[in-house]
Computed example of a mutant assay.
Amino acid sequence: MSFLQALHHVAIICADYERSKRFYTETLGLTVVQETYRAERQSYKLDLAVNGHYQIELFSFPNPPARPSRPEALGLRHLAFAVTDIDAAIADLNSKGVETEPVRTDELTGKRFTFFADPDGLPLELYAA
C-alpha cells in the first residue's frame, strides 16, 4: 500500500513573472491562493488553484538556466488539465491568442486531447474528462 495520498502541487519556474502570472490567471483562469515576494532570493512565489484543487506554484528567479521542455524531452513531459468541453476550451484559448495543436484521440482511452504552450514554451495539455 502506498503512503502517497494525492498530488500536492506542481512547481513551475518562469522567465517573465508578470507575463506568466497573466497567462495562468487571466488566460487559463487559475485562482490566486497567495502571492509572496522573497527579497533575499529576489523571487516571487505565486500559489495557484485549478478549480479549487491541485495547487500550482509559479516561481520567478533571477536568470534561471534554460531547460528543454518539449513533450519528448527527458524529465517532466507536460502538465495536463482535464476539461469537460474540449472544443469550448480550445476556442477560448484561441480567442486569447493561444495556439493549440490539432486535436488527437488517445488510442488507449478514446478521449480527445490537444497541446499548447505557456509563455516559456512549457507543454500544456487539455484532456477531455
Rank of each mutant, 00 (worst) to 15 (best):
R19Q: 12
E26R: 10
H78F: 14
Q5V: 02
A89M: 13
P102H: 03
V98M: 14
P119R: 00
G52S: 15
D16W: 02
D85M: 07
T25F: 05
S95K: 11
R77C: 09
A82F: 11
S69A: 15
A6V: 02
A91W: 12
F59M: 10
V33W: 11
E107H: 11
P123L: 09
A128G: 14
V33P: 01
V103R: 05
D85H: 07
Q5P: 00
D47G: 08
V33N: 15
Q42C: 10
R70M: 06
R77V: 07
Y44F: 12
V98K: 10
L48F: 07
H53G: 07
A128N: 09
T84Q: 12
D106K: 09
L93V: 10
K111W: 02
L30R: 00
A11K: 12
D87Q: 14
S20D: 00
G75L: 09
T109H: 12
F23C: 05
S95E: 09
L93N: 06
V10N: 07
V103M: 11
Y17D: 04
H53S: 12
A128C: 12
V50H: 10
E99L: 13
T114F: 01
P119Q: 02
S69L: 09
E125N: 02
G121A: 03
S60M: 02
Y54P: 01
S60K: 01
N94P: 06
K45T: 07
A15P: 02
F113W: 13
I13G: 01
Q5G: 00
E57S: 13
E35S: 05
E40Q: 06
V98Q: 13
P123G: 10
C14S: 03
A89P: 00
E18K: 11
T27Y: 02
E35G: 02
A15I: 04
F115S: 00
S69D: 05
E35F: 06
S43K: 01
P64L: 08
V50A: 15
T25E: 07
F3T: 11
G29W: 00
R67W: 04
T36E: 14
L4R: 14
E99A: 15
Q5M: 01
S69E: 06
I13W: 02
R67C: 04
K96S: 08
N94L: 11
H9R: 05
K45D: 03
F59I: 02
Y44W: 13
T84W: 06
H78C: 13
A6Y: 06
L108Q: 15
F81L: 13
E99H: 14
V32H: 08
I90A: 00
R67F: 06
R67S: 03
L48M: 05
R22E: 09
Q34H: 07
A80C: 10
N63H: 12
V98N: 07
L79Y: 00
A117S: 11
Q55E: 14
L76R: 03
